[in-house]
Design a protein around this nucleic acid. Structure first.
Lengths: 191, 191
DNA sequence: CCGAGACTAGACAGACCTGTCTGCTATCGT
DNA sequence: ACGATAGCAGACAGGTCTGTCTAGTCTCGG
């Protein structure tokens, strides 16, 4: 079994871990291949035989972020039973994340800001946004919103704003602010 | 008088205009000096004698954006007399801007996403954010909000979210959504 | 034991980056 | 008329970037 506890993680996994740290902290364009392979302790040829190009490494990095975000968010919501608490819990989870030291805002927005349109970055960013919107729609539906589509749109705006604000102000307070507004909207949208 | 209608704009002005277009459209790190001077029709030596370094050109670009944003926003608000309309007018102006073809979100956030912390980009971005927050505070105060500080914080979240959402979805709709939420918050905050 | 697959180290090519320097030209105030 | 200022064109240096290639090492199934 190739899956059973290798003493060392595979080159692919180490590359992804290194890319995740460096790309998120400093930007996908700022960080060169040499820094990634140095931190991963991997030969350059391994990177290119595994991913083919830097662009594909960036895509893999963002896909990993997308998956991590989904699992972290869904796991965080399991704490709550009441549908309203679950909806507001999204902002709790964001607030916790925004309070951690390395927080630098939305990885997809950041990567998109320094990538040309039409590339792999845009693809993954679109998928991530669609998922977020769908999540809010379902939560709004479960919470009994009269117009779940409108509420979901509003919650997405609040979420984006909280993430961007927490990053720019280096202060997770914006997530609490957004949570408060979301609670008011939810109350108004469900009688 | 050195100010009287030169047939050609000065090298400084042409450099700033070129930098503004290219940096905003493609990112400050992606665009090299050579592209800027080529579009400006200016010699490289002129750039370095005028600005000293690319970093300083980037700062000048962002300072220009900051000033343009202030004048555009304040001019846009002059359409309205009622303090509530003026407050909501910020989202109208944002929506108009987000609907123009070249819109790519907040220039300060974008530049910050690809710049190291502690540089000139962060300085200008902080100044721009402080100004925005102050504007919303004054508008909230004029509109008679019970707690203008809290309302201003909420409006900043909405503004950031509208800007980010419009950029990522390539759709200015988020600005209208934010305006709607702002109107509800304003109504609730003023009786 | 042996051969295949995965990996490492590092040289190399070719492009592009910022920043400097030299030399030339045009304009303008005095 | 003349010097100062501003600007232009482009070569150049030194660094960094992505991506390729060679050659050697390690591990493991059969």
């Amino acid at each position: 079994m190739s899956v059973a506890s290798p003493r060392k993680a595979s080159a692919r996994d180490r590359l992804l871990a290194a890319a995740d740290e460096l790309f998120y902290a400093e930007g996908v364009h700022t960080v060169g291949i040499d820094r990634v392979i140095e931190r991963a302790g991997v030969a350059k040829a391994s990177l290119y035989s595994t991913f083919g190009s830097k662009d594909e490494l960036v895509r893999a990095y963002l896909e990993g972020r997308h998956e991590l975000r989904r699992t972290r968010l869904l796991a965080g919501l399991e704490r709550y039973d009441d549908p309203r608490d679950r909806l507001l819990g999204v902002f709790e989870v964001l607030g916790e994340l925004a309070g951690t030291p390395g927080f630098r805002g939305c990885a997809f927005y950041n990567a998109s800001a320094e990538s040309p349109a039409g590339g792999p970055v845009e693809e993954v960013a679109n998928a991530n946004r669609a998922w977020t919107k769908g999540l809010f729609y379902e939560l709004a539906l479960d919470a009994g919103a009269k117009d779940p589509v409108t509420l979901a749109d509003q919650l997405v705006v609040l979420y984006d704003g909280a993430s961007a604000g927490a990053r720019m102000d280096r202060n997770p307070q914006a997530a609490q602010t957004a949570r408060g507004v979301a609670a008011a909207l939810l109350a108004a949208a469900t009688f």
